[in-house]
Design a protein around this nucleic acid. Structure first.
Lengths: 140, 140
DNA sequence: TTGACAAATGCAAACTACTTGCATATACTA
DNA sequence: TAGTATATGCAAGTAGTTTGCATTTGTCAA
């Protein structure tokens, strides 16, 4: 868990001003077990008593993602979700029935990446890998 | 390559009427080496002298994808692309500089899927896997 | 501590991808 | 060949995201 002080430093390091909205967004993402979309973040900010604006959140998330502080996740919902970038390269199990999202903690793609880089002469910067199906509860 | 006759049969099999627009879309997707978005398809239809409508193409692609005739591909562009469903489970190398898209013909995830299904008790129906980076031409 | 300046915010409006309602046209079946 | 279910075209609507601009706020140097 990142303390508010650390968050401030983190923002300073990437040349972003530590505004209340940004600190609150970081805090919200830190606490969340699933990637959140803009509306989620908006209403959680509201709950904290922080009035803000969709445009601001979009801009915030774009800055964070540009700077590598967060990751944009695409779950084929027609909108983006965001999560804190950690150094584990994890992926998601998305239930097509109830929409629950579970993490898979280890990424097995690294070996494969090396192979592809050599074979295809394509330098891989990042990858996305998501599994869609039925979670334990929805398999009846 | 699927002939027009086979296309008609294929549509009949999945209970869709073989309209000129649909046959032309299938033909376009058959010939394309990359997944196409709706605007691509629209202008290629126009080139063929076939006047149609974005709504129609969206509806067409939704039907095709529902019936499993095509696959919807998400390359984090804020819009969907489509390609013919084939029985190979291939993935894409997307160049972040020039936007070129290359196929990787074999999918190495199958073994991993089994492992995940057992460990997590999650039934995997499908997965998405895309690699983003720099193609051979953009590595200077 | 303060004042200046760059950067962030809030609001409204614009933009893009996609969907829907409805009247008309068309493919297919009997 | 006529009847019917389905597809189309058009226009309007919705949702996610971006942008312009005037105002506010964080930060840094004096």
């Amino acid at each position: 868990m990142i303390s508010i002080h650390n968050c401030k430093d983190e923002l300073k390091n990437i040349n972003l001003k530590a505004t209340p909205a940004r600190l609150a967004v970081l805090n919200i993402l830190e606490k969340s077990v699933t990637p959140l979309d803009i509306s989620h973040i908006f209403s959680l900010l509201n709950k904290k008593g922080l009035k803000t604006d969709f445009a601001t959140i979009f801009r915030t998330m774009n800055s964070f993602t540009e700077k590598g502080l967060t990751k944009q996740i695409n779950l084929n919902e027609g909108k983006a979700r965001y999560e804190i970038s950690r150094n584990d390269n994890h992926h998601h199990l998305i239930c097509q029935n109830c929409g629950s999202i579970e993490d898979i903690s280890d990424c097995p793609i690294d070996a494969l990446e090396k192979e592809i880089q050599e074979k295809k002469k394509f330098i891989i910067k990042t990858h996305s890998l998501e599994f869609f199906g039925l979670c334990k509860n929805c398999q009846s």
